[in-house]
Design a protein around this nucleic acid. Structure first.
Length: 591
DNA sequence: GAGCACTGC
């Protein structure tokens, strides 16, 4: 260990951790992984001698499980704090408490303990909030480097921002100096609609005006398609990038001089009272609008066209609601409990999550047998917390040992816990659907995914095969990484990851019920499905292999309200299995 | 008949 302890720098995103580490290693003039290192899931380029270690905040939360006082670090820098991700917020409370505990130990005469310095880096305007939380910590202001960006608001509110974006893009193209355009939209469907409209209108441009080329970018695309936005526009032409929020923080696109901000994004929400997640179009915050604007001024002065009025901007919230107040807390609460924090409702949150959400999560963890009647972590809970997957998946893994299907459980969990391996560009929807048919299992998505993984491996992950079969190869490689890691974790906890149920795949579905018995629905006489817990009418998502099918009972991976209550990752069950799966569920609640 | 973005020793 370094004489003064390592400096840790946490980041919400993996790429940021890698890029910062590489840049700093270069400045210091040492190879990456020695004095300057990074650590992210699947890729640890750090050593015990690293003086500075960049890492994702998820990694630091994992490290806390085995080193509760983070003794190997003397300084912890929490970067991008203004984003207020769930993990950053949990870390705030943890490092604050650790700092105090270490100080107490030093005052009691412990010489082997060093004080912990905490640095919070935030691009927010109200640094006071962070300062007050950390015992009135000193604030330092550092100005950023950016070219000026002129802001133009609309005079009237716009009824159809996709249409206004179309008109504005062509206006820029015909009247303004060269430089690409970036339009912020809310999702794939909107992006693909606007792409088509731009292509249609572009054919009507006068001959002396250069082409306007639409370039869509969103997370579900495969990587070769995503790379296209980095190709420069041919001379005399102009690119117009159609992006989701991926371009706000995750991907930096060069040569942008003009930003068109629709003022909206899709936002994950969570109704803690009924325990249902949603994904809905909502107005962005002022800080998000400023972030979008800044994308026009990275290389030269730019212009930001806001498709809403100045009054509308003034009415936006200053910052987005912190994720911790609008998400499912099961995973976070299990982490807290496993780090020795029993009284989670008394935890020193910077912003307190709704009590109803905490109670619901505690109840679910109890139902999964991760907590006992007193709300204490059980042996099962301790094992669950060690797995790098959500609690229901962890429960399935433990159950798979008893049901002798660990191999299949690991594989299906890997497939379900990444973004969809099936890509479906709307222009080739029929083709994509047809390609998928050869993997479809009548039992539903769990076994369909398993079939697809087996087929992928039989061709050794061939890229052309993926393209022909509309399989997202980036997501599929991620599946393989997760599987490898889960195999290691199972071995470490004394399980046999090779244990297989062979052809008797019904067992695997029963095994999944151990974690997902609350995510079940029964067919009604009118042909709809109603959830067993809560009695909510749910619809099978069109991307599911059971879409349009009627089975007596179904289990689902996820329920999200968008235009309907859609369930994804759906498989058929026998209703008799349900009563066997969850004897403890109707037990009493405990904090 | 359709899902924003992240993350896990």
């Amino acid at each position: 260990m370094a004489a003064h302890g390592t400096i840790a720098v946490t980041q919400p995103r993996r790429v940021a951790a890698i890029n910062l580490a590489k840049r700093v290693a270069e400045e210091v003039g040492t190879p990456i992984g020695q004095k300057v290192g990074y650590s992210i899931r699947f890729d640890d380029a750090s050593s015990r001698d690293s003086l500075i270690k960049y890492m994702t905040d998820g990694i630091m939360l994992r490290e806390l499980l085995s080193d509760r006082l983070l003794l190997r670090y003397s300084v912890i820098i929490l970067d991008e704090a203004h984003e207020r991700t769930l993990r950053t917020d949990i870390l705030f409370g943890m490092v604050k408490s650790i700092q105090k505990q270490r100080q107490d130990m030093i005052e009691q005469g412990r010489r082997d303990v060093q004080p912990l310095k905490i640095v919070v880096m935030s691009a927010t305007l109200d640094a006071e909030k962070f300062s007050e939380y950390f015992y009135n910590a000193k604030i330092m202001y550092i100005s950023g480097r950016m070219y000026p960006v002129k802001i133009l608001n609309t005079v009237e509110p716009q009824s159809d921002y996709v249409d206004s974006a179309l008109v504005t893009a062509f206006q820029i193209h015909q009247e303004e100096a060269p430089g690409d355009i970036l339009i912020f939209l809310t999702g794939q469907e909107e992006i693909e609609n606007l792409e088509k409209l731009i292509e249609e209108y572009a054919t009507d441009l006068p001959p002396h005006v250069g082409k306007l080329i639409p370039c869509p970018i969103f997370a579900a695309q495969d990587s070769t398609t995503q790379q296209r936005i980095f190709e420069p526009a041919p001379p005399g032409t102009r690119k117009v990038i159609l992006a989701t929020n991926i371009a706000e923080t995750s991907i930096t696109i060069p040569n942008i001089r003009y930003v068109i901000d629709t003022g909206c994004h899709k936002s994950r929400g969570y109704n803690a009272k009924i325990g249902i997640e949603s994904l809905l179009v909502e107005p962005i915050s002022k800080s998000s609008a400023r972030q979008r604007m800044g994308r026009a001024g990275r290389e030269a002065p730019g212009i930001c066209f806001r498709l809403y009025t100045e009054d509308a901007f003034d009415e936006l919230e200053e910052d987005a609601v912190p994720e911790i107040k609008r998400c499912n807390l099961e995973s976070a609460i299990l982490s807290l409990k496993a780090t020795g924090i029993d009284d989670v409702t008394g935890f020193d949150f910077m912003d307190r999550p709704p009590k109803s959400g905490m109670l619901r999560s505690l109840e679910h963890l109890y139902a999964l047998e991760a907590l006992d009647d007193e709300g204490k972590l059980t042996e099962i809970g301790k094992k669950m917390a060690a797995f790098p997957v959500d609690p229901p998946y962890a429960k399935v893994l433990l159950q798979s040992e008893k049901m002798e299907c660990t191999k299949e459980a690991i594989e299906i969990i890997s497939l379900l816990s990444v973004d969809s391996i099936f890509s479906s560009p709307s222009a080739k929807r029929e083709e994509a659907n047809e390609a998928r048919q050869k993997f479809v299992s009548l039992d539903g998505d769990h076994l369909t995914l398993l079939n697809t993984l087996r087929a992928y491996e039989s061709v050794k992950g061939d890229r052309d095969w993926c393209r022909e079969n509309f399989i997202n190869s980036r997501h599929m490689r991620h599946v393989i990484d997760v599987r490898k890691q889960l195999i290691q974790f199972c071995e470490r906890s004394g399980m046999d990851p090779k244990r297989t149920c062979g052809q008797d795949l019904e067992i695997v579905l029963k095994c999944f019920l151990a974690g997902f018995f609350q995510n079940t629905a029964l067919l009604q006489p009118d042909g709809t499905y109603k959830s067993v817990i809560g009695g909510q009418t749910v619809s099978i998502h069109p991307s599911s292999s059971l879409f349009g099918k009627k089975r007596e009972a179904i289990m689902y991976n996820e329920l999200v309200f968008t235009t309907k209550h859609y369930i994804r990752g759906v498989s058929a069950l026998e209703s008799a299995w349900l009563s066997q799966a969850a004897p403890k569920y109707f037990g009493r609640r405990q904090a």
